[in-house]
């Protein structure tokens, strides 16, 4: 059963263009010129329930824009999206109860609060009853091994500890799909390994569908069975990791695909 269905999805942005120097600045006020950029260009794909999918591509390929449309952050210019049977552009709030998001570059936690207070706050956001939230915090803090720092303000935590807390915050309402945008960015190899182990555990035990974007080949190789590669807003490959692998390391194969697409 497909949990994500995307058909002919496109997103364009209108960007103001300015010629160089002060003359260009004045000209852009008097007679502004715009260009249209197709960040996502007519893509279609589907993801099965319980699948772990890597959605990758070079910088500016349209990965984050796609994730943002799937999670209801951005409105698509055209095309159709159904996530767990919900249209993100029309039923954003309903969708929010079903999905979790971790953006490695954007923190959702309040840094001055402890992880525990943060989780309580997120519990209220997702309308979880007080007794239920206590049980959920206990369960997740055991799984993600947060017990030793659950009462330390987030600002005093290491990056690895923070990411683990971000993941718990994203899982507090038992989402069916977890969108991970560069979840291991800036982490050391040991923490990365630990995070990957936890993602696998979550997928196996809870059946959570994982939609992952990452530049880290290790994340892709260790977690996902299928990979979609995008470049310049278009899907250039949708295949299994097994098929993609030859006698070369996966990193080299992906680099070659990126380079070919750029040419």
């Amino acid at each position: 059963m497909n949990i994500i269905e995307v058909k002919n999805l496109s997103k364009t942005f209108k960007i103001k263009e300015k010629e160089k120097g002060i003359k260009g600045s004045i000209k852009s006020i008097v007679k502004p010129r715009y260009k249209t950029i197709k960040a996502v260009n007519d893509i279609s794909f589907s993801v099965e329930k319980g699948e772990m999918l890597a959605f990758i591509g070079p910088n500016g390929a349209g990965k984050s824009t796609t994730i943002k449309m799937l999670t209801g952050i951005l409105y698509p210019t055209s095309g159709e999206i159904m996530v767990n049977g919900i249209n993100p552009a029309k039923q954003r709030k309903k969708l929010a109860y079903k999905i979790g998001t971790v953006f490695g570059q954007k923190e959702q936690l309040w840094t001055h609060l402890t992880p525990y207070d943060n989780f309580k706050f997120f519990g209220a956001i997702y309308d979880i009853q007080n007794n239920e939230i206590e049980d959920r915090i206990e369960e997740l803090s055991k799984t993600f091994e947060l017990e030793s720092f659950i009462n330390t303000p987030v600002r005093n935590l290491s990056l690895g500890q923070r990411i683990r807390c971000e993941m718990v915050a994203a899982l507090i309402h038992k989402p069916e799909i977890l969108f991970l945008d560069e979840p291991t960015i800036g982490l050391d190899p040991v923490v990365k390994k630990n995070i990957r182990k936890l993602i696998r555990k979550m997928n196996k035990e809870l059946g959570t569908t994982i939609f992952l974007t990452s530049h880290d080949v290790g994340d892709i190789e260790k977690l996902c069975k299928r990979v979609i590669i995008v470049n310049k807003g278009k899907i250039i490959m949708d295949d299994t990791i097994k098929n993609l692998k030859s006698n070369k390391p996966l990193e080299d194969i992906i680099t070659e695909i990126y380079q070919e697409a750029t040419i």
Partner: peptide
């Protein structure tokens, strides 16, 4: 910075 509020099931 509205992203944080857009993924929550509350009034953005």
């Amino acid at each position: 910075k509205l992203d944080t509020f857009l993924v929550q099931p509350k009034n953005v």
